[in-house]
Computed example of a mutant assay.
Amino acid sequence: MLAIVIPYYKYSYFNATLDSLANQTDKRFKVYIGDDASPTNPLALLETYKHQFDFVYKRFASNIGNVSLVKQWERCIDLSANEEWIMLLGDDDYISANFIEEFYKQIGDIHASNVHVVRYATQIDKMDDKLSRVFMHPKIETSPDSFYRNIFNSSRSSLSEHVFKRTAYLKHGFRDFPLAWGVDDFAWLEFTEFKNIYTINEAIAYIRISSESISRKGYREEQKLKAKYLYFTLIIEKFINKFKKEQHYKLFRYYEKLVYRSNTISFRFWFLLSKFYLTNAYVLQFFKFQIRVVVNKFFKS
């Protein structure tokens, strides 16, 4: 069975989310809605869906998402029962009518692939109501390869298009980065234990970008940068060897730029990158790196 967990706060597009669940061709799912003390109570809206799909609704007494979105996700997941698979669906995102049907059509292959994370094809629903192209993925791909493609803009990823095993969630949990920025990307690495993700390209998750979305440009960019710096530091310091050797150079350079942008130059940073350049016989790059560190440490305006 599949649990669809919705951390609810924004009312504006919530009806579209609920419509997409009501329109599913396969109703083998249960919805758990955790209301983060939203200023707009959705009970009247939910009443209209009472006989269209099975759901549980709980309004929390206090808002926690403003402090930690991850803690809001966690208490919403705690509402669910013992379903093997969990999906965290944004309160403004929505899914194609065959989303659940395709999950069960392919569940045999999913189990045979021994994966803990399943993802779907996606389209971005932009603020001008235009849909992006469909983003599709390899049927089976390692989570490090997926992360790498996403970082370097040859792919995309967000929370709502993923389904994950409860056992993986209970084992690893979500890391609590600021604004929950990058938490999902890092979770797929850990939930899969840096192994494979299975893709369903035959159904679509629609990811809405609106004036209320955290992912919109210009919104709390300093916090997003801090989050990106934190999870990339973990990648470089602890998990770099989970990535292909030919991917290391670009990952180190990306991290270096993040450090300069976030003004977090440290001895450990200098040592790690110096060691990387010298170990791999990037002698010219090693000397260029020393110059960049000095310029960014002492002469950056």
Score class of each variant (00 low, 15 high):
A3D: 11
Y8F: 12
Y13F: 15
F14V: 06
N15T: 10
A16Q: 14
A16M: 09
T17W: 00
L18D: 03
T25Y: 06
K30S: 13
D36V: 03
A37M: 03
S38N: 04
P39H: 04
T40W: 01
A44L: 09
Y49C: 06
H51Q: 15
D54R: 04
Y57N: 05
R59S: 10
K71A: 14
E74R: 03
R75K: 11
D78N: 14
S80C: 13
N82V: 07
E84D: 13
W85N: 06
G90K: 01
D93V: 03
I95F: 00
I95K: 00
F99M: 09
Y104V: 08
D109L: 11
I110P: 02
N114G: 06
V115R: 00
T122Y: 01
D125P: 00
K126Y: 12
M127Y: 11
K130V: 12
K130E: 15
V134W: 00
F135G: 02
E141D: 07
P144E: 07
D145K: 05
F147Q: 03
N150M: 08
N153H: 11
R156N: 11
S157K: 03
H172M: 08
P178C: 07
W181D: 13
D185I: 09
F186H: 08
E190V: 07
N196Q: 07
I200F: 02
E202F: 01
A205K: 01
S210I: 12
E212M: 13
I214R: 09
I214G: 13
E221K: 05
Q223C: 08
F232G: 06
I235R: 02
I235E: 10
I235D: 06
I240M: 12
K244T: 03
K245A: 14
H248P: 04
R261I: 08
T264V: 10
R268S: 13
R268W: 07
L272E: 11
Y277E: 13
Y277P: 05
T279I: 11
Q285D: 15
K297D: 12
F298N: 14
